[in-house]
Simulated assay, not measured.
Amino acid sequence: MSEKIASLKVGCSNSKKLKWFAWGTGGLIVFIGLLVFVVFLVLHPSKPSFNLEDVTVYQFNVSKVPPYAINIIMQVTLSSRNPNSRIGVEYQPLHVYATYRDQQITMAYLLPPTYQGHKEPVVWSPPLTGYDMPISPYSQQSLDQDWHAGVVLMNIKLQGDVKWKVGTWISPKYHLYVHCPANIRFGDLSNGGPNLIKGQPVDHCDVEIAS
């Protein structure tokens, strides 16, 4: 009988030790997570900067009769730099596309997930195409005037999700919005449309990050 009682006491003791070990391990993990989160808040990450490095238009045509539509083939080069010295940036799949007067004129190109280390630059060069992309009559008139004037202001937009990374801790998702204006100078249109045109970035890209 005494042996059974002793065995039960040992079993209870081991069970308590396992519970305390589990609680201690869980508490340590929570503490480390909170510590990293506090460090993240103290470091206060700065949003990455973006630049539109190059815009090349290979084909650009606008229909003259309803329904109005655009056919365009172009390639853009976007660069990003992480200004943080201790925080990494994880870009989830990002979508890049071109707009004219807030109307999308190319299909969205999906950029793959990318990790950007401390003070590290990243460069993307996605092709952007649009076939029979519909536009409003008002946009068609404005585009026709701009086109024959030789300069069309387009906007290259990038949208997606980002996460911050400090050590092994990764933040929740934040929404990234990037807006890069560019002047497309067509010059001589006597042949009906440009063959290859280089665009000129107007200003730095606007970057917004929202929760």
Rank of each mutant, 00 (worst) to 15 (best):
A22P: 00
V10H: 05
M1T: 14
A98C: 09
F60M: 10
V55H: 02
C12Q: 04
S15C: 10
Y109K: 09
H204E: 14
R86V: 11
V65Q: 12
S139N: 15
M133N: 05
D144T: 12
P181T: 07
A6S: 11
P194L: 05
T25S: 12
H175I: 14
L35H: 09
V38P: 06
P137C: 06
E53M: 12
H148W: 00
N82W: 02
L43R: 07
I29A: 14
M74W: 00
P137N: 06
G187I: 00
M154C: 06
A182M: 07
E90G: 11
N14Q: 07
Q145L: 12
Y177Q: 12
K173E: 10
E3P: 03
Y97W: 04
K17S: 11
M133Y: 01
F37L: 15
G150T: 08
Q159N: 13
I135V: 10
I156K: 00
R185T: 15
A149K: 13
S7K: 06
N191T: 15
L28H: 03
I72K: 03
F50N: 02
V38R: 10
H175S: 15
V202S: 14
Y115K: 15
Q59I: 08
Y131P: 00
S15K: 01
P112H: 08
K157Q: 10
H175P: 02
N183S: 15
S139F: 02
P67K: 06
S125T: 15
V10Y: 04
V57N: 05
V202T: 15
S15T: 11
V62D: 02
F50P: 02
P194M: 08
G24W: 01
P93C: 04
H95F: 03
S136W: 01
T56K: 02
V55I: 07
K47S: 09
C180Q: 03
Y91E: 11
W23T: 07
S211T: 09
W169D: 10
M154T: 09
A69M: 11
V76P: 01
M154N: 09
S79T: 12
N155H: 11
I29C: 10
S139K: 05
I197W: 03
T99E: 09
S13I: 08
A182C: 15
